[in-house]
Simulated scan of single mutants.
Amino acid sequence: MTWFQDFPQMDDDTLRSLKQFIDEGFRGFTRSYGETIEGFFNPLQKFLLLSEKFMTQTPWPVIVLIVLAIAWGASRSVKITIGALVALMAIGYFGMWDDSMRTISMIFVCTVLSIVIGLPIGIMMARSERVQRVINPILDVMQTMPSFVYLIPVVMLLGIGRVPGLIAVVIYAIPPMIRMTNLGIRLVDKDVLEAADAFGSSSWQKLKSVQLPLALPTIMAGINQTIMMALAMVVIASMIGVQGLGQPVLKAIANQYFTLGIFNGLAIVGIAIIFDRVSQAYGQRLQKHLEVVHG
């Protein structure tokens, strides 16, 4: 195996100098522009705090009714609605309500942010092969990079707190939203687009009235995956100050509290199942509706 040991490598001093140069450059960037970047994210922090305040200070019966109304409106399924009720009751009964509401508020903000950023990028990718060639490798890196790595530059730029955690979660969770938007628009039947052209529709009218409505079930699948990935990041994001169910799980790992970790882990699973079933059911209803309309 000596041939492998002789593999050509960069000189240790050169490698050390390169790493030091990159680290010092990034530190210098954070010192110069850190405050400006923090100011840029102030509206996001206010939105997150407002969402968290609503979820934690609103009486629990009101929150339960809102969630059940959303579940029923999206799914029209008694089974899914009752399942959501049972999950919420169990979360409250075992004393995890406040942490669960903080987690739900963060997932809500992450999802809104992912839609606001991801939808336009996905549309641009669908309309331009050049943009798709540029964006696809970036999405590949975002999806394969270990999630802990996202925390390093975010913490160096913004420190510890809710907003850095939120940004790390969005970076981790947004690729499915972008990919599925791109895919959904590209899968729209060309005959439908030709018919829209025949009626003299502009590019914007085709996008607004034809492509986006027909791509909506696929986009909903992207939103579903974004929510699932955001929930998967909750525990890791708790390492940099994100409040919610992730912090008790982190505490359980550090102190070997088995039941604390299991209970809060199951609460995350319960929230994930509610989001997953409701969004999937809504996507299926959209699909059936479109099949009826265009069938």
Rank of each mutant, 00 (worst) to 15 (best):
Q5W: 14
Q5L: 12
M10V: 13
D13V: 09
D13W: 07
D13P: 01
T14D: 12
L15F: 15
L15S: 10
F21R: 12
D23S: 13
E24C: 03
F26V: 09
F26Y: 13
F29C: 10
Y33S: 01
Y33I: 07
Y33A: 09
G34N: 12
G34E: 00
E38G: 06
Q45A: 08
K46E: 07
L48Y: 02
S51Y: 10
F54G: 02
T56C: 00
T58E: 04
V67C: 10
V67L: 06
A69K: 01
S77L: 08
I82T: 10
L85C: 06
A90N: 14
I91T: 09
Y93K: 09
M96G: 08
D98T: 14
D99L: 04
D99W: 09
T103S: 14
I104V: 15
F108R: 06
T111S: 10
S114P: 01
S114Y: 04
I115E: 01
G118T: 01
G122R: 00
S128H: 04
Q132T: 15
Q132L: 09
V134L: 15
N136V: 12
I138T: 07
Q143L: 03
M145Q: 13
M145T: 15
P146T: 00
L151A: 01
I152N: 11
V154M: 13
V154G: 06
G165Q: 09
G165T: 07
V169T: 15
V170M: 04
V170F: 03
N182V: 04
G184F: 01
I185W: 00
K190C: 01
E194W: 10
E194H: 07
E194F: 03
D197C: 07
D197G: 02
F199H: 13
G200D: 00
S202G: 12
S203C: 03
W204F: 10
W204Y: 09
Q205L: 00
Q205C: 00
L207Q: 02
L207S: 02
S209K: 14
L212I: 13
P213E: 00
L216C: 00
G222M: 02
I223P: 02
Q225P: 01
T226R: 05
V234F: 05
V235G: 04
S238D: 02
Q243S: 08
G244F: 00
L245R: 03
P248M: 06
L250V: 12
L250Y: 13
K251N: 14
Y257L: 12
T259K: 12
G261N: 03
F263I: 15
G265P: 05
A267G: 11
G270M: 14
A272D: 02
R277E: 14
Y282M: 10
Q287T: 06
K288F: 09
H294V: 02
H294L: 10
